[in-house]
Every structure is written in structure tokens, then in C-alpha cells.
Design a binder for these strands. Structure first.
Lengths: 110, 110
DNA sequence: GCCACGGTTTCTACATAGTAGAATAAACTC
DNA sequence: GAGTTTATTCTACTATGTAGAAACCGTGGC
């Protein structure tokens, strides 16, 4: 969380997925969201490993979903993006933004 | 270079530095550029390691500068961003862009 | 020639992040 | 309780990121 603690590329993507999914963010959904949005194939192991590392840093928290799942299957483990995570994400985005500032169109706008 | 080969965060930053510096891109300058732009401290080892890995992937090429340095110091080794590198950079940026698309302002614009 | 100096690159060593896929778990239905 | 479905954990490994000391190679002065 300290200033200067930057996120990896995939960590950023995962955090953005949490941001998008809000209260419905759990492992499988995060994976699906990323795959659908980016077209990039993602292994489930990659998602959980990343989510857990982010939790270790305090950027996200997790809690067990209701054990009463209507239609079979194991209970979900939901993840929530914490404020420190939002900050880390913003800082990381910012670094790239600064590096792109002023570049000729095609780069600058992204 | 194959589709699906994504860049790490720092790799992206380094490539952006090359883009900015153009023909004047050599190790120390890349470092300086990143530090000045982002405010983030960067070790010289990190820069060269990254540059060399990028070269290994064919994303950048390097060549020795003129041995006739006017004011002392070892000759420079210049780096050039190749088209494959530009493409990889664009693809990586794109993934993030897609993940941010439609997020409420403050996120969406970055 | 030798030495100190300054800008630059290389080397060494380790920490953190990314990846895949098999194994396991926990709920449901019959 | 066997089979099916949805989900998470585990294991093993590769790739990226990071720091700082060491080595290089020009210069200029003595």
C-alpha cells in the first residue's frame, strides 16, 4: 500500500474486473468477465493466485457466499475491492498515463 | 510476438520511454525519462534487464553508439522500438482499455 | 604512462507476478 | 449414494521486476 507499490498488468486487469462486477465478483465470474471483455484466455488458477496476492496486500477482501445455492455447485467466495486497491490501481494507471502524455494521436488517447 | 503475448507493466513503461526518446534512447536516458515523467524511482539494472528481455522477443533492437564520445564516458548502446514492439504495446494497452470501457468517470477517461 | 573521474553498461542474486491444469470440495437431483 | 454441476485449492513452474556492485572505456591532468 505504500507509495511506490505498483501493480502488475494482470493484477490491474483483475482489479478492474472487480470494479465492473461489484457485489457479484467471485473467481469464476472474474475469469469470465476478463475473457469476454478482452478476448484473452485466462486460466482459473491465474485468477485465484492473483486475487489471493491482492488480498495479502489488503487491496481486496473476501468472504464466503450464502451456502444456500439454489441450483447445485459449491458456495461462492466473493471478493471486494477495497479503497487501498482502488488507490493502487489509480496510481498504476497514472504512471502509464504520464508516460503516454503528449504522444501523437493513436497513443495519446488510449 | 504471437497473439496473446502480453507485456508486463514495466515493459510497457520502458517501451513508452523508447517511443518518447526516439533516436536518443539508450539505457541511462530511458531511466531518466521514466523517473522524471512518473516520479517513480527506477534502478538501472531494472531498465537493462527489461530492455534485454524485450530485445530477446524482437520488440526492440540495439546498436552501439559512436565510439567518439566528446566528453568521456563509455560509448552508448542505443535501443530502437521495432514494429512488433509497437504492436505488443498497443495490444496490451488495448486489453486495459477494454476493461475500463464504460466505467464511470474517473476511471473511464484514464 | 598512470591516475582519477565521469558516464555507461554488465553482472549477480533474489523477490514478485503470471500461468496452466489437475485435484478437490460442496452443493444439488434422482 | 452415484452422478452432475459449479466452484475453489493445490502444485509446479516460467516470466517479470528490482537493486546495487562491478566492470568498461572514454577523457584530462600531471
Amino acid at each position: 500500500m505504500a507509495k511506490g507499490d505498483y501493480l502488475g498488468e494482470f493484477e490491474q486487469i483483475v482489479l478492474l474486473a472487480l470494479l465492473r462486477l461489484g457485489p457479484n465478483a467471485y473467481g469464476m465470474a472474474v475469469r469470465r468477465e476478463i475473457e469476454e471483455r478482452t478476448g484473452r484466455r485466462v486460466s482459473i488458477g491465474a485468477v485465484y493466485a492473483t486475487l489471493e496476492r491482492l488480498e495479502g496486500k489488503g487491496y481486496v477482501t473476501s468472504f464466503a457466499g450464502e451456502p444456500t445455492a439454489e441450483r447445485g455447485g459449491r458456495a461462492k467466495r466473493f471478493f471486494r475491492l477495497e479503497s487501498g486497491g482502488q488507490r493502487a490501481l489509480r496510481d498504476s494507471r497514472e504512471a502509464i498515463r504520464k508516460m503516454m502524455a503528449g504522444l501523437k494521436t493513436g497513443w495519446g488517447t488510449i
